Simulated assay, not measured.
Amino acid sequence: MEATKSLKRERYLFWILVGGLLFLRFPWIILGKALAPAYGAGIVVVFEVGTYLLTALLVFLERKRLAEYHIDSLALVLLLGAPVVILIGSKTGGYALPGQGIKALFASVLLIALLIWRPVLPKRGAAQTAIYLGAAVLIGGALAIVSGFLLSFQVQKPLDLSRFPSAGRLLYEALYQLDYAAAAEEPLFRGFLWGGLRRCGWKDHWIWLFQALLFAVGHVYYVGVYNISAFLVVPLAALVLGLAAWKTRSIGTSMIVHGITNGFGNALVYLFCGLLR
């Protein structure tokens, strides 16, 4: 009986934390951008730091059931490492949002907590992990090309091709997007929400479609400004990212796809604008 009550409390806490993530992703970001555009940078910083904190709490709370949320060793390494890597990069000439040190601190605390209270992770060999990494890089590269091509059609003024980033800058941009976008969105849409809905009886294919719709709605602030992003790029990316996490049972895969797509796709806009105009 006591174990059942404890499990119910954990379930309530789980949905409270997921609700916090949804609040930050929807009313906070969407209404913040619409009602207080002058404070856009501050709104994003609160979103990034708050989202990482709630994600860390969920990882620790569900540490014995992480496989249910597509979190394996690869995903955990990326979630813990990305904030620290970008913090180091920002100290050596790279860029990062304010609050990066706080995210890195949360990552360090979570790492210590998981070393003390060991998580249960799905067992995957090095060969399978290597296959996932390779597939993620290929899918991310392909999606970056498609998104870069589509995004080039919403550019209204000529771009200076001399500003096309160097190889080092491209790599850093992908790492930055891994921390900025992927670590903020993949654990929610393709991780905890997916696992929570499956536990409620939803089938994977319905969750796949629902998370894509929800992800698209979460970018509604693009409508009227960047319509190609809103109606083509974001929904397509949501379906691909969901499929990657679903079929590999790892948001580590979808995080890499996400980081490469955002990081390389933005740069490829310059290339396609130069070729098409």
Rank of each mutant, 00 (worst) to 15 (best):
S254Q: 13
V257E: 09
I71F: 04
W117Y: 04
G125N: 12
L24C: 14
F164L: 03
S6D: 07
N266H: 14
I71G: 03
A107I: 09
G50R: 07
L170Q: 08
Y39D: 13
L97A: 12
L170N: 08
V137A: 10
W246D: 06
L13M: 08
P158N: 09
R199E: 15
V240L: 07
A113Y: 00
I30E: 04
Q211N: 04
K5N: 11
A244G: 11
G40R: 10
A41I: 14
R63V: 03
F189N: 06
F149A: 10
L74C: 11
L276K: 08
G168W: 02
A136N: 09
A56Y: 06
I71W: 01
F231E: 03
V223E: 13
A174K: 08
R169H: 12
F210G: 12
G191I: 06
P158K: 06
G195K: 01
C273Q: 10
P37M: 10
L7H: 06
I251K: 07
L241Y: 09
V223L: 13
I29M: 15
P119V: 00
V44S: 15
L275S: 08
V109L: 14
G99P: 11
V234Y: 08
T55F: 01
F23P: 01
P235D: 03
L213T: 00
L236W: 00
F26K: 13
F264P: 06
V46Y: 14
F264G: 04
R199T: 09
K203I: 01
A135Q: 12
G252C: 14
G20A: 03
S90Q: 03
I116H: 14
G274V: 02
L209K: 03
I256E: 03
G19V: 09
A144P: 07
L31N: 03
K8P: 02
R65Q: 06
T253F: 14
L236R: 06
A182Y: 00
E2C: 11
A238S: 08
R65G: 01
E186H: 02
V223S: 11
A136D: 08
L241D: 07
F60G: 05
V85I: 14
Q211V: 12
L276A: 05
G141Q: 07
W194S: 13
A104G: 12
V220F: 15
C273P: 05
I139V: 15
L31F: 14
K33D: 13
K33T: 06
P165H: 05
L159I: 15
F210R: 02
F231M: 02
G50F: 11
I256N: 01
I43A: 05
Y221K: 05
G81Y: 00
Y270H: 07
K123M: 09
F189R: 04
L133H: 14
I30G: 01
V233Q: 13
A36I: 08
V220S: 15
L175S: 02
I251V: 15
A212T: 04
I145V: 12
F23M: 05
I86K: 00
R249M: 10
L22T: 07
Q156Y: 15
I139T: 12
P98N: 11
L276Y: 10
R277K: 02
L241G: 06
L271V: 11
E62A: 12
Q177P: 00
R249Q: 13
Q156C: 07
L175I: 05
K64A: 09
V217R: 08
T261S: 15
